[in-house]
Simulated assay, not measured.
Amino acid sequence: MTEITHITDETFERQVLARKGTVLVDFTAEWCPPCHMIKPVLAQIADERSATLTIHTIDTDENPTAVRDYKIMSQPTLLLFRDGQLLRTLVGARSKAKLLAELDAALQG
């Protein structure tokens, strides 16, 4: 099983912005029910796409700098990066099929 790494304001640049390849960052909060709903979906995608996609999670309550910098207003918010560049912002929980379709469309475009 592929581990989804927890990152912080201090590790965000190194783990996301300076990283080559595709990275999905899940902005989440412990108190957020939709965040808990999408967690198993992200775990499945992390396993299936481990060769081409890295998934990280960041707690919005503990990391105000990233929240401010990316204007996170709702949880979960997913940010998709390629080679450190933001490609797409997805707000809210969704099914695995819908999330994969949105990720694939963003990566092809």
Rank of each mutant, 00 (worst) to 15 (best):
L42Y: 09
H36L: 09
K98R: 07
A105Q: 14
A97C: 02
L80H: 04
R94D: 10
C32E: 06
I7Q: 01
L103C: 01
L78S: 06
K20G: 14
A101F: 01
Q85M: 08
T89L: 07
F27I: 05
A105E: 13
G84D: 05
A93Q: 09
H6W: 08
N63A: 03
T54V: 11
M37T: 15
Q75R: 04
N63F: 11
Y70M: 07
I45Y: 01
L100Q: 07
W31T: 12
R94A: 10
H6G: 11
E3P: 08
P40G: 05
E62Y: 03
F12P: 00
R82A: 15
T28K: 05
A105G: 05
F27G: 01
S50H: 15
D104P: 02
C32D: 07
P33T: 06
R68V: 08
L42G: 13
L79V: 05
L99T: 08
K39S: 15
E3T: 14
P64F: 09
H56I: 11
T60G: 02
L78W: 04
V23Y: 00
V23F: 11
G92H: 03
L24S: 06
L99H: 08
L90V: 09
I45W: 00
P64E: 03
L78M: 15
L17C: 01
K39P: 07
Q75T: 02
I4D: 06
A29G: 15
L53D: 12
K39D: 14
A29S: 03
D47F: 01
R49P: 05
T22N: 13
K71I: 13
P40S: 02
D104T: 09
V67Y: 01
V25C: 11
A18Y: 12
Q15I: 04
C35V: 04
P40N: 11
E13H: 07
V91C: 11
R82L: 10
A46D: 06
A18G: 14
L100K: 13
G109P: 00
R94I: 00
P34I: 03
T11V: 08
I45N: 03
L80P: 06
K39F: 04
I7T: 00
K96V: 00
R19K: 11
K20W: 14
Q75V: 14
T60M: 10
L87F: 03
S74H: 13
T54D: 13
D59T: 06
E3V: 14
E10D: 10
R88D: 12
Q85C: 08
P64D: 06
P64Y: 03
S74E: 12
Q75K: 02
R68E: 12
L53T: 12
D26H: 10
L24I: 03
R49Y: 15
R19W: 03
D47H: 10
A106W: 06
K98S: 15
I7A: 00
Y70P: 09
K39Q: 14
L99V: 07
C35G: 05
V67N: 01
K96F: 13
C35Q: 04
I72P: 00
C35M: 10
L103N: 05
Q15Y: 13
Q108C: 05
L42T: 08
I7H: 05
A101C: 02
P64V: 08
P40H: 11
H36D: 07
E102D: 13
A105M: 06
L53E: 04
E102K: 07
Q108Y: 02
Y70W: 10
E30G: 03
R68D: 06
L107K: 08
R49Q: 10
I45M: 02
P64R: 03
A97D: 14
